[in-house]
Design a protein around this nucleic acid. Structure first.
Lengths: 215, 215
DNA sequence: ACGCTAACGCACGCCGCTGTCCGCCTCGCT
DNA sequence: AGCGAGGCGGACAGCGGCGTGCGTTAGCGT
């Protein structure tokens, strides 16, 4: 039979699946996405074959592992949209997003990079961006956000935020927080207009690397 | 004999040395520091052994390769210091530094990371930071730079700038330019004071990685 | 022109990561 | 309790990077 109905997994298999995802989340958060598959397996206390059986490609593993983070992401933008003050909502989104990324190094890479296959992942990403765009429009109308802001600036800031590295998680979050505050300062509408250079269309980096490198 | 006088290199050796450094600069600029040593050797048209003979460790290679970039760096800060308007000088330094790093991906990593052994490299780094600190002090006195700016904020911005990636060099520089402008906006003194969260002491990442991972 | 020696590069052994095959185990149904 | 399929993990081959030993080549001084 070539039927591939998503059979309910056996209890032990399900258990292993969870342990793998937990391990993946933990290690991705700290060390980023460029971790050997074996390392995930090791931490999960599982043989490599088991890992590959559940998640044939790293992309699948990553997608599954960050589903809940994507929900958190959606929560943040929704919270921002719900705020009666669009500027405050906008700031909140920037801050929370930066913090989210500071706490989870892998998530940054996952969100920034575009997964060719992970459709719903991409959809959620689009949702978040559209929401931020809407928020930005309102904040501009309220005269709090500088008029020459563009949506790509958010991507720019998030990419930039991902460049910030520190030795300890605490320092990392702290640094990221300050960075977010600076970003907000930069976005704030101000009487002294110093025009920004033109935007560069930011095509996200190819995909999840399968081997070494970085990035 | 255990004497290790720095014998003058033979002409062909000297030639190869230059070709290696050129290749290293080229590939580091585009792909960052996490390129295999062999790749540098390949591009230089040289056997691995030759590369290792001249530069036993990657650190040595990197240090040598970026010497001229360090001079450029010094030139930038000196130019900034020489400016009659400290704020304009400060902005210039930020802009040029970001551009320098946008054009040369490896240089960022080299400057950000701290090389335990490369003494003069570290010295130049210190020189640049001290100069920027002096510039910042003057710009604050002139009332143009926000008072709660600290030197670590420059590191923060440079690290952040290194997180920005684009597909083409042109886009990269363009994005980086916009980012620098945003950073300057953030640093500018302004009547609407929104206090920044406390600084996090940024210990730079360990050293040059010898294998995978990226950054 | 000749020889000494520095410099070269081929090729090797080592290691870590990848992805898969296969024999044993165990869950879950009867 | 017994059986069968689904699951497990050890082991293997392939690849790519690392760093080095060694026989050969070619620069340079006489």
């Amino acid at each position: 039979m070539t039927d591939r109905l998503p059979h309910a997994l056996r209890s032990d298999a399900l258990d292993n699946r969870e342990r793998i995802l937990d391990a993946a989340r933990a290690v991705f958060a700290v060390d980023g996405l460029d971790v050997p598959m074996r390392e995930v397996a090791r931490r999960a206390g599982v043989a490599p074959a088991t890992l590959y059986r559940r998640f044939p490609t790293k992309e699948m593993l990553v997608t599954e592992a960050f589903t809940e983070q994507m929900y958190a992401c959606r929560g943040v933008v929704d919270e921002g949209l719900a705020d009666s003050d669009p500027w405050r909502g906008f700031c909140l989104v920037i801050e929370k997003m930066c913090e989210l990324h500071a706490r989870d190094r892998g998530f940054t890479a996952a969100l920034i990079s575009t997964f060719p296959k992970a459709v719903d992942f991409e959809a959620r990403r689009e949702y978040a961006l559209r929401a931020i765009d809407e928020l930005a429009r309102r904040a501009k109308d309220a005269g709090r956000l500088r008029p020459d802001f563009v949506l790509d600036d958010v991507i720019l800031v998030l990419m930039a935020n991902s460049g910030i590295h520190a030795t300890s998680p605490t320092t990392q979050v702290s640094a990221s927080r300050r960075f977010a505050a600076l970003a907000i300062s930069a976005f704030q509408a101000s009487p002294d207009i110093s025009p920004l250079p033109p935007v560069a269309r930011l095509a996200p980096p190819a995909s999840v690397s399968r081997g070494s490198q970085v990035g």
